[in-house]
Design a protein around this nucleic acid. Structure first.
Lengths: 142, 142
DNA sequence: GTGCAGTCTGTAGCAACTACAGAGTCAAGA
DNA sequence: TCTTGACTCTGTAGTTGCTACAGACTGCAC
């Protein structure tokens, strides 16, 4: 769409539609300070412009990468301060990457055990269910 | 203390200590119906026996494998009904296994992108931070 | 008897949304 | 002009799986 003085004043539903973000979520992000409160029309309706949209996209993209809202707040702060943010941003991402890897490791442990018990259950006709027996055992797995 | 038939009547803290489960968590599991309400002493203190402990261990083990409380409720129901539970239990586990795999896939996507941006950031002296630029882009990754 | 640890209940908090209820606003159609 | 329907507003409560109190009671040792 035309944009020079063009997209002044889109409303919540339109912003949500454009970004694929849930309506209520936009409001939530404003409430918790991730997005700035937009100006209002005379009757109190929120009126967004392209900078709001851009910022929302940033948040959504960061969420896709699993950053917590706190981490995103930190990243946005770095964006705004514009004072050599790269090293700090990289550190935030590196810490998050370590978290992601730890979660993957956890899930893989679960995956292995689950694979195993599902296979042992076979067609499900065993009188003693291996899954249930496994769960009653003291931690056999590390 | 010493009860003739062995471990009749341990209390909450002792149960928590034995199983490694947080005190408050035991109470929470009772409240949401995962564990049966134990009998009480004259003054209202909960008194657990080995079947309570066994059941709590089951819940904790299932949590370690990432089962949701709803799934655990379902598994416990199957345990109690004892009516050929293996096929159904296996199905619960198979669905959960699929969830776990989906989560792993999500996290690996995140991992790849994060690895990439952290590497691009290098020593953090770039004027335009690649991480931040990536986050401002429309989804480049699927 | 007095101190302290244990237990009891109920409630509130966390993350990150999501889903209402109940009221107001706005533009188009009859 | 009136009405309908879709949109917006606010505030609050629900979700999952806990965790952490507050304030009162109990049980036991010294």
């Amino acid at each position: 769409m035309g944009d020079h003085a063009g997209m002044k004043g889109i409303q919540r539903a339109e912003l949500a539609r454009r970004t694929g973000c849930n309506l209520e979520t936009v409001r939530y992000y404003e409430k918790v300070g991730l997005l700035p409160e937009p100006p209002r029309t005379a009757s109190g309706y929120r009126s967004y412009n392209s900078t709001h949209e851009r910022r929302l996209r940033f948040v959504l993209r960061a969420r896709e990468l699993g950053f917590s809202l706190d981490e995103i707040r930190e990243l946005l702060r770095l964006v705004d301060e514009r004072d050599r943010p790269c090293a700090e941003a990289r550190d935030v991402a590196a810490v998050h990457l370590a978290d992601v890897r730890a979660k993957i490791a956890d899930l893989r442990r679960m995956e292995r055990v689950l694979e195993d018990v599902v296979a042992q259950c076979g067609d499900g006709t065993l009188p003693e269910c291996p899954l249930i027996e496994t769960l009653f055992q003291e931690r056999t797995v590390n």
